[in-house]
Structure formats: C-alpha cells, structure tokens
Design a protein around this nucleic acid. Structure first.
Length: 275
DNA sequence: ACCCATGTTCTTTG
DNA sequence: TCAAAGAACATGGG
C-alpha cells in the first residue's frame, strides 16, 4: 500500500492521534525494522514531545521537540495503527510508541519487514542523505520536463526513481501513464513538452484523487485503470469487466513487465513507441 | 506447492 | 559513467 497517498493518509492519522503528546515508552518487538540501534532510538525519542508531522515522498516524519525527526518508511507492506493494551496490538506490529495523554500506543505494522525506522536531524538532511528528489506533489511541470528530457531511459522506471521525484510507486505510475496516454516504454528524452505537461497534470490528478479517498482504491473513479489490476476485486464477481479499458469497453488491458515490475496499459490509449 | 507482490538497494553485465 | 537486468531482502496470501 504505502505509496505517497497512503503515507499521506498515515501522516494525517499520526497527526490526529499523536501530535502534542509525549512519547513515554518504546516497545521493539522486532528490531529488524530499525535502521538505528535500539538504544539510540530509545534515548532519542523517550521523553520527547511530538510537535508535528511531515512527509517527503513515501517518507513520514514525526517532528520532535528537540528539532530532530523520527522517520518512518513503510516498505512494501507497512501500515500505521493504534492500540490501547498490548493484547490488542495489530498483527505484525513491529514497533510501538507509548503516548502520554491518550493511553494509546502508536504501532508500526509491517508483515514483510521491508519498512525502516530512522532518525534524522532535519528533512533537508534526510532528503540529501537519501538522494530524494522533490516530492511528486511539489515538482513543477518545467522541472519534470527538464529531468525527463535528459534521460534515454523508459519513462516508467524514471518516474519510479525517487531521486527524480519522490513518492510515485508501481501502481501510481501505471495510473499516471494511463491518464496521460503515454506508453511506459517511451524514452524520457522522446517526450514532447505537451506530453510532459500531460504527465504532470496526471500526477497531480492521481495523487490528489487517491489522497481524497484515503487511498481506498475501490472508491476511485471508474475512469481509473487501477480497477483492472488483478488484486482489485471490485468488479462484479463472475465477470471480467474490470479487465477492459475504462475508455474502450472492448479493449483488453495488457499486462507485461517493465524494469522487472508488473505493468498494465491500454494498448489503444497508450501506443507503443515506434522502433 | 508454487507463484506473486505496493519498495529499496546492490551487483552484474554490457 | 550510463543503462538494463537480476537478485536480495522477509513474509503473507491466492
């Protein structure tokens, strides 16, 4: 789940549940998700008050009252939750922070354990250290065109590259390319200014729509390609209506791999590059 | 039992 | 230096 819209949704949840409260305890159930030694993390956060939240791409920041940041990255299967008593902790809770006022614990949930918890001195320092580009909601059309036009690489892996712009993941890139009517194997430097502008508009549309629906895919507009992905079973059972293009009811969505990632397109909307 | 998976990072190969 | 492909990570779910 955790691409930019999910992480933004998690951030808002943390903002509701935890901001203004002091961290009174740290419970590490599985140190695998820690990118800093447990002792160091404990010293850094216990007794600190959470003063705010932030986000850059797929990274969520908890701002502490000493100016430092607790940074959460959710990997492929990470989630955030809250619980009152230990027996009620969500399944796959790996780390939990005890909050002072509400009696709640904030849970870092991650079945597959690709997520990571880190500390940073500032968002800027973290962005530099991790070589992250501008957030996908912040990048301008001109910036996007300039970055894409210098690369002779398929546009899909370029958009997935967090150093170009941060926050886009596999399904969002497919959705963006579908909305912009661009084939994922077009080369970055082959895109016209018009196409790059369409790409930029599609990024804004897809991200804002997803955030508005709190990343609940089933509620996305019928015009979205996401309903064609196999794991979306929102189509009527017993039919395969969801395997057709939203714009072309008779054209089947195609699945293939680009850069090793499952990729879905409408062959009518997104013509393959010549040659 | 086998295959697939929303992310990141490293290695290998050209 | 660049680009592409593959693997590794750890695990659940279909």
């Amino acid at each position: 789940m955790p691409e930019l819209p999910e992480v933004e949704t998690y951030r808002r949840f943390i903002n509701e549940v935890a901001v203004g409260q002091t961290i009174t305890g740290l419970e590490v159930r599985d140190a695998h998700v820690l990118a800093v030694p447990e002792d160091e993390l404990r010293v850094a956060v216990v007794g600190r008050t959470i003063t705010g939240t932030g986000r850059l791409g797929k990274n969520c920041f908890l701002e502490l009252d000493n100016g430092r940041l607790l940074v959460l990255h959710f990997g492929m299967t990470g989630d955030i939750g809250a619980f009152r008593d230990a027996p009620d902790a969500p399944r796959f809770t790996r780390v939990a922070w005890q909050l002072s006022d509400s009696g709640l614990n904030l849970a870092f949930i991650d079945p597959r354990k690709f997520g990571r918890i880190r500390l940073a001195e500032s968002a800027e320092a973290y962005q530099k250290a991790k070589k992250l580009g501008p957030d996908a909601l912040q990048i301008t059309a001109a910036e996007l065109h300039q970055k894409l036009s210098r690369r002779r690489v398929f546009v899909k892996p370029l958009l997935l590259d967090q150093s170009l712009t941060a926050g886009l993941g596999n399904w969002i890139v497919d959705e963006v390319l579908f909305q912009a009517k661009i084939h994922p194997e077009r080369l970055g430097n082959s895109l016209s200014l018009t196409e790059t502008n369409a790409l930029h508009a599609a990024i804004q549309l897809v991200l804002k729509t997803a955030i508005r629906h709190e990343a609940n895919y089933r509620n996305f507009p019928a015009s979205f390609l996401i309903h064609a992905r196999e794991w979306d079973d929102s189509a009527t059972p017993g039919t395969d209506a969801h395997t057709f293009c939203p714009r072309h009811p008779k054209v089947k969505i195609e699945k293939f791999y680009v850069g090793g990632r499952a990729t879905y397109i409408c062959p009518r909307c997104q013509p393959a590059p010549a040659g």
